[in-house]
């Protein structure tokens, strides 16, 4: 593990140089807000952007991804045989993501890369990706990442962690992937490890002071699933919900998807798209029966999955990294912090 100083006047040159090896992703701002996107040559990531509305999960798990294709031309030997769609998995670097988003990717990894199943699309993309995070000097009012096992300068899941020091970045290189990225950028001005670590510690402490939410979920694991499931507060939690999919789409840890087939003339494609447990269609059976018929069921499912089922299944804390995107984007201000508190404090009478 070593530290590098990157003078900001060299930053752009280094990034452009790294394009010889890497496809670059990063925050972009346009009139519609901020999101993480692939950046064309010459387009720079906006490092001082506010929290992006959309998380970087799309780098590994695009909202629409063609996974299989087939030729329907019966004169061909391999007609109607589904084959893996051709995708590029050349090295890519995601710049300027927030540390909690890197942890989120580690949580999503539990689903796509585990002993039982390795999703080839997600795993190949993950292998190809270098995550360059930027510590958050001034967390906003929705940020509660210190409560969820990460924080504004968390290193989990990152290959490089940058700290913004006005005229320069201090980079903490955490993995061989990170070393390769720094080398490809030509960033090689070493910094004293002890001093640098001390600086990181100061910045982290300063940043953490801005986070006022102290979220407790310590009692969730001990609670009975059925008690929480049947708790009386769900109607109140769900009342204002309009059942849009915003919270699940902006969430960096929501991984549910749907599979769709489309054909035209002699071509067929199967693709996967994000799905949302907020939609009635998510659980609609072919018979017409829907086990989660009302919005209360669906709202309960979202929070039970994140704050109870996940806790029980993986023993990795809650399925939330405290980015606050759902809190900020929810049209009706449903706040996961409040729901978590309600669930954690609930005692069946």
């Amino acid at each position: 593990m070593n530290f590098i100083t990157i003078d900001k006047s060299n930053w752009t040159k280094g990034i452009e140089k790294s394009r010889e090896t890497y496809q670059i992703f990063g925050p972009v701002e346009d009139k519609n807000g901020c999101r993480i996107e692939p950046l064309e040559a010459g387009v720079q990531p906006i490092m001082d952007a506010d929290v992006t509305v959309m998380s970087p999960k799309s780098v590994l798990f695009p909202q629409t991804e063609t996974i299989l294709t087939a030729d329907l031309d019966e004169s061909k030997d391999d007609h109607h045989i589904m084959k893996r769609a051709k995708q590029q998995y050349t090295p890519r670097a995601v710049l300027g993501i927030r540390p909690y988003d890197a942890r989120a990717i580690q949580l999503v990894k539990l689903n796509f890369d585990n002993p039982d199943y390795q999703d080839p699309y997600w795993c190949d993309a993950y292998e190809a990706t270098t995550f360059v995070g930027l510590g958050v000097n001034r967390p906003g009012p929705c940020d509660f990442s210190t409560s969820t096992g990460c924080g504004p300068f968390s290193e989990e899941g990152l290959d490089v962690l940058l700290a913004d020091l006005d005229d320069r970045y201090l980079a903490k290189v955490l993995t061989p992937k990170g070393e390769a990225w720094a080398a490809a950028c030509g960033f090689d001005a070493g910094a004293d490890a002890k001093e640098s670590q001390a600086l990181f510690d100061i910045l982290r402490k300063e940043a953490e002071k801005n986070i006022s939410t102290d979220l407790a979920f310590d009692k969730l694991a001990q609670k009975s699933i059925l008690d929480l499931y049947e708790a009386p507060f769900w109607d109140d939690v769900a009342f204002s919900c309009i059942n849009c999919g915003t919270c699940t789409y902006v969430c960096p840890t929501c991984w549910c998807f749907d599979i769709q087939d489309e054909t035209k003339h002699k071509k067929a494609a199967r693709f996967r798209i994000w799905d949302t447990c907020m939609s009635p269609l998510f659980t609609s059976h072919a018979s017409g029966h829907n086990p989660r018929e009302s919005k209360v069921h669906r709202v309960r499912q979202r929070f039970m999955h994140k704050l109870k089922y996940f806790v029980d299944k993986y023993d990795q804390g809650i399925m939330c990294v405290g980015c606050g995107r759902c809190v900020a984007s929810c049209p009706v201000n449903i706040d996961i912090r409040e729901v978590c508190k309600t669930m954690n404090n609930y005692e069946k009478k």
Binding site: D30, N32, G33, R35, M54, Q63, I242, N243, C244, G245, T246, Y249, T276, S279, P280, P331
Partner: peptide, 21 residues
């Protein structure tokens, strides 16, 4: 509409959109 994520918040916030499906 290029940034539309199809969350359908516009539809669901609309009082006119009360179709069962």
């Amino acid at each position: 509409t290029k940034n539309c994520i199809r969350c359908y918040a516009c539809r669901n916030a609309c009082p006119l959109c009360y179709c069962p499906t």
